[in-house]
Design a protein around this nucleic acid. Structure first.
Lengths: 205, 205
DNA sequence: CATACCGTCGCAGGAAAGTGCGATTGAAAA
DNA sequence: TTTTCAATCGCACTTTCCTGCGACGGTATG
């Protein structure tokens, strides 16, 4: 329960601040401190429990680092970055980060984040959490989806799985002609010309 | 800055607990308290700033309620539920919830969540935050994507947008025959038989 | 140097998708 | 009751997709 925490951060001041946070908390042990992603790959030799990773590093980015660490060890990576744009957030989470805090966080907030992490949480700065949640929010194109009948949605559902007309027909006990008819109506209602476009629209409803 | 908070919760004990949390905090004003989603639709007449919504309600579910509230007012909905499965989490966030806490939260945690909400955050219980973040994590089927050449990925990219062979060919300055050839190779490498299946695999890489 | 692989292109033939036109039933709405 | 509309089915026709087979130049790998 004494968690080792390593740091990957090129800015000396911030590096020191993080070191202080960890040193001042007896629940944590300070691991290694690196100034670049390349150097940080060394942590695979003796993996810490947690790594605090900056994104903007000289050379290889923190996001790539996280992806590579994830592929080779079970290190919980907490992003600590200036970047608060959707693209960076997405890419960091995709590559396996389990938390994302901004650099304007107070010492107390960083400490809290680390404790949340060991509790199995996924600490995020308020703004980040809000962005993350907003990714899930469905755009209200419900008007369009409301246009589709229940049957049409069933067909579209199966279509999106990659089934072809014959297979859909069999599964729904229809003639393939009926499936074609449904598709024709769907295309009209969604203003599209083919399967793939219909599926793409369907994904957002 | 005096935020009104309404409650939608059928369990009397829990309802009271929430009321107490709000009453004991001078930053908040207690709005209405409802025992069902149907009754809670009344809050549209005089919308509170925040609504704490249970999912498991008699009759209409809290998720539907949130969706309908979102469509008609700017109420920040905080889910407070027993359910911690991915399906409920997803659906709640899709319908517009801005936070999701579990019922095993302490009074202090609930209070914190409310304060996070007004700060523009998206409060989540640690476990929930972890699940939410894990939705983003890319399954490491990178081996398969590595099989695809750069050109093949370009083609697949355009295909996923709904373009057809002719259009892809034009855009990449190729003959449609070449596009066909690429597709054939892609199908082989991904072990699929048609466009839609290829796109589906591609989305996870 | 040989082999392998990528990217380019072509043709033939069959399978699937998409369009146009039309039809029947049944249920719901006007 | 008439109208409307979802759901079902059919046929003819065009377009697109998919497969199989083959080809050529370039690059990299051995």
């Amino acid at each position: 329960m004494h968690k080792t925490i390593s740091i990957v951060e090129d800015n000396a001041l911030f590096q020191q601040a993080l070191v202080d946070v960890i040193r001042s908390d007896r629940a944590f042990a300070l691991g290694e401190v690196y100034g670049s992603a390349e150097a940080a790959m060394d942590m695979l030799k003796n993996p810490p429990d947690i790594a605090i990773v900056d994104i903007n590093l000289p050379g290889k980015s923190g996001i790539e680092l996280i992806a590579q660490l994830q592929a080779n060890a079970a290190i919980q990576c907490l992003v600590c970055s200036l970047h608060d744009d959707d693209d960076h957030i997405m890419r960091a989470l995709e590559s396996g980060a389990v938390g994302y805090i901004l650099k304007d966080s107070t010492v107390g907030q960083i400490s809290n984040a680390l404790h949340e992490l060991v509790k199995g949480g996924a600490p995020m700065s308020p703004y980040i959490a809000n962005r993350v949640i907003s990714f899930f929010r469905k755009p209200k194109i419900r008007e369009e989806s409301a246009l589709l009948s229940v049957r049409e949605r069933e067909v579209l559902q199966l279509l999106a799985k990659g089934l072809q007309y014959k297979e859909i027909a069999d599964q729904l006990f229809l003639s393939t002609e009926t499936v074609k008819k449904h598709m024709k109506n769907i295309y009209q209602k969604l203003h599209v010309q083919n399967k793939v476009e219909a599926i793409n629209k369907f994904r957002f409803m």
